[in-house]
């Protein structure tokens, strides 16, 4: 009886679903873009240094590693997972890169080793999560601790200066046609992420797993492999991010990237990717990263105390999750 009613009113349901789809795919992005705009206007009016080419360049160089990791994190969160270990991986990568380069290892080999470390971390996380059904929160929380420990072990807790000349530092400092290379890398990765999530089978599986994992499995898709791949993405993205930061700073340290994972997760959920999976947006993620970067940058220019910045950031994360769960979540 109710089934017939459903069919009868299906015309209206179709229209609502058009609208809902539009809201889900665009309004979250549009509204966060609006927030970005308002925040930018605010900082432009209260500081003289915010709206300058110099600051803008600084800002985009600053957020380039965040964009790289956040794009990867979008895939993980879209499957319904989470990766808390990216901050520690970032630190390990920077420590490893600086240590290797200082020991005279060449750039290419250093790059390979650091990326391999990221891939390995992702593989281990993904394997435990996908094949042993251990919750991603716990798995990557544990990884966050032991990877930070390994990073500390590598450096002995000190910061390691990158001595000697290597082309690898161009990753953090170099420019090509006036554009910082780190920014170029971030843009390329964001572009690939956008295409992969929206227009490929892999992206479909990632979204489908977040919506109904068992349904995807029943179509014959190797869902566990897909999940492992998403953690390999975050692991290697964090390694690349750490490398870029080490190259930019000219040193590696096991102490960087504390609460980096929270910035990234906040950016992703602010952007409109569903916290519990099933829907993800790369464009939203990029705007989310920019928003958080601008808030940090603007508050710093206003000479707000770093302690207060941290408090504000905490509330931004809370707000992001709140809005996400209340308005953009697919879970009913």
């Amino acid at each position: 009886m109710s089934a017939e009613q459903n069919v009868y009113i299906s015309g209206r349901i179709k229209q609502e679903s058009h609208l809902k789809k539009f809201i889900r795919e665009n309004t979250s992005v549009i509204s966060i873009f609006g927030v970005l705009f308002v925040v930018s206007i605010f900082f432009s009016s209260v500081t003289n240094s915010f709206l300058t080419v110099n600051n803008f360049t600084n800002l985009i160089i600053q957020i380039a590693p965040n964009i790289i990791v956040a794009v990867a994190m979008t895939f993980v969160i879209t499957t319904g997972g989470i990766d808390l270990s990216v901050g520690s991986t970032l630190a390990l990568a920077s420590a490893l890169a600086a240590t290797l380069l200082s020991a005279g290892v060449n750039g290419l080999l250093t790059l390979a080793i650091v990326l391999l470390a990221g891939v390995s971390i992702g593989t281990i996380n993904g394997y435990i999560i996908a094949y042993h059904n251990i919750p991603p929160l716990i798995t990557t929380l544990a990884a966050m601790m032991y990877i930070r420990g390994i990073a500390l072990l590598v450096t002995g807790g000190y910061s390691v200066a990158i001595s000697g000349q290597t082309w690898l530092v161009q990753l953090g400092r170099g420019r090509l046609l006036g554009v910082p290379i780190a920014v170029m890398v971030a843009v390329i990765i964001a572009g690939m992420g956008l295409v992969a999530l929206k227009y490929t089978s892999f992206g479909n599986y990632v979204t489908g797993i977040g919506a109904n994992e068992e349904a995807v499995r029943r179509t014959g898709v190797p869902t566990r492999k897909v999940k492992i791949w998403t953690y390999i993405l975050t692991g290697s993205a964090a390694a690349l991010g750490g490398l870029i930061i080490a190259a930019r700073l000219g040193s590696g340290s096991s102490n960087i990237g504390n609460t980096f994972e929270l910035d990234i997760i906040a950016a992703v959920v602010l952007g409109g990717t569903a916290l519990f999976g099933g829907a993800g947006t790369i464009i939203g993620t990029i705007i989310g990263v920019a928003l958080i970067g601008i808030i940090q940058n603007g508050l710093m220019l206003m000479h707000v105390s770093p302690f207060i910045i941290q408090i504000i950031e905490g509330f931004v994360l809370l707000l992001a999750v709140f809005i996400n769960v209340k308005f953009f979540s697919n879970k009913k």
């Binding site: 295409v195 992969a196 227009y199 490929t200 089978s201 892999f202 479909n204 599986y205 979204t207 489908g208 977040g210 919506a211 109904n212 068992e214 349904a215 995807v216 029943r218 179509t219 014959g220 898709v221 569903a274 099933g278 829907a279 697919n330």
Partner: peptide, 27 residues
């Protein structure tokens, strides 16, 4: 039914057997 709510009708129908072009599994 085993459908993925957030995927489109077409993506549900072809889930796991998407027609692809170029490289990298672009649908």
């Amino acid at each position: 039914l085993s459908l993925c709510d957030t995927l489109s009708v077409a993506n549900n129908m072809f889930l796991g057997r998407e027609p692809t072009k170029f490289v990298g599994g672009i649908i």
